[in-house]
Amino acid sequence: MHISEGVLPGWCLITGWVLTSAGLYVGLKSINGRKIPRTALLSAVFFVASLIHVPIGVTSVHLLLNGLAGALLGWAVFPALFVALLFQALLFQFGGITVLGVNTFNMAFPGVVAYYVVKPLLKKGTTGSLIAAGVLAALIGVFLAATFVSAELMSVGSSFTKTAELAFLAHIPVAAVEMVINSFVFLYLKKSGIPLEV
């Protein structure tokens, strides 16, 4: 879920940019050579995949995939999602430029956390551990992002309590779907013999 322009207070927007700049600094330092086009291409994959309408019950959801992106990219998830969000803002006006810092941090930081948590599971590589990795990446990615979004909305003022609550609840179906999808993606990559850490 991307926060729109004009919602958050200035200090929140600026803090977002500061944190994202730090994340970008670490992320960009970690990639060189062949990892530059690789990060870009995977970023495009996450951009495109997040546009899929995945049916759930009578409605459909878009996926965040930040846990999965983090697990595969490590700190490079910062530049990868920054670029994807920049294009969402430019091409569709989803999110925006002043909130780009906040939105990138909301998505990418949980990705980095997911990276450290699931790394040993991916290394182990058994079916069970890959499924566990998929479930954990979804839970960490989605719920940490939801927590950030809700906390930021709360920071606007007391009138935002309901808005923040509803925003958090909207993430629950997304997490449920992503648990299944992430697990199958890890199994897929394993079966294909592609390194799980790219």
Partner: peptide, 12 residues
């Protein structure tokens, strides 16, 4: 998930 796996693979 297979679509995504496939995209990741081809993009890789």
């Amino acid at each position: 998930a297979y679509f995504m796996g496939n995209l990741l693979l081809k993009s890789y």
